[in-house]
């Protein structure tokens, strides 16, 4: 493919500890996610899914190999630069603990932008736009006044507010029933079609099936992919 990936892992390896106790969480993984692409990662617990997501978002660094986000190799960055790049380019959606209960939906979306130095007025404007994009029309409600599906909408809006287009989702459908889970995927899919790059970790195949490409991890390695032709061509 001739696209510039939003995130690229090249021969990424992550080892925790050393000597005989060393745990190889990830072994030489190559993975690219381009703008407009939804890639799902599946694998049993301990297969390296979370490590992969943490490396892709710059929350953790590879022991060897390289991670590149929006053209910037993360290895060369200081901790401060890395934090700035994360805030500017990377959004996260997790299963829970997503929203701050004492802030409204709009304030939750504004928060990371304000931390990034954006003025409150502009941050609110951005937040309302992002919430409208995900179809939430009650921006001044508090999280506990929203349903599970609506809370995930807010989390997705927050992850993509500003200019961020890399979205990392770790089991975002966790406790939701299947119609609501499908709604979350529909939303992620729509954000993808609007130009975002989404890396989704899930253990549920019905949600992984929304992806353009499904990658199976086993023992820290990519065991297979639904896009086999592309993998071997690389």
């Amino acid at each position: 493919m001739s696209f510039d990936p939003v995130v690229r892992l090249a021969d990424a390896t992550r080892v925790h500890g050393d000597g005989p106790q060393a745990v190889h969480a990830l072994r030489g993984v190559n993975l690219e996610v381009g703008a407009g692409e939804l890639v799902a990662v599946m694998g049993s617990s301990g297969s390296g899914k979370s490590t992969l997501l943490n490396l892709a978002g710059g929350l953790d660094r590879p022991t060897s190999g390289a991670v590149t986000v929006e053209g910037t190799p993360l290895t060369s960055l200081t901790a401060k630069e890395l934090a700035a790049l994360r805030r500017r380019h990377v959004g996260y959606v997790f299963q829970d603990l997503n929203l701050i209960p004492s802030l409204t939906a709009a304030e939750n979306v504004m928060l990371p932008r304000e931390l990034d130095g954006v003025r409150a007025k502009q941050a609110r404007r951005e937040a309302l736009a992002a919430l409208a994009e995900v179809g939430l029309d009650e921006p001044d409600r508090f999280p506990d006044e929203l349903s599970g599906g609506q809370r995930q909408r807010v989390a997705i809006a927050r992850a993509l507010a500003g200019e961020r287009r890399l979205l990392l989702a770790d089991e975002p459908t966790g406790a939701l029933d299947t119609p609501t889970g499908d709604e979350v995927l529909q939303l992620l899919r729509a954000r993808c079609d609007a130009g975002a790059a989404v890396l989704l970790v899930t253990h549920e195949s019905r949600y992984a099936a929304w992806a353009d490409r499904v990658v199976f991890l086993r023992d820290g390695m990519i065991a297979d992919s639904t896009d086999a032709a592309l993998e071997t061509a690389r």
Binding site: S205, R206, F216
Partner: peptide, 9 residues
């Protein structure tokens, strides 16, 4: 598993 995933997709 890969074949069934393609069907699911």
């Amino acid at each position: 598993r890969t074949a069934t995933m393609r069907t699911l997709q």
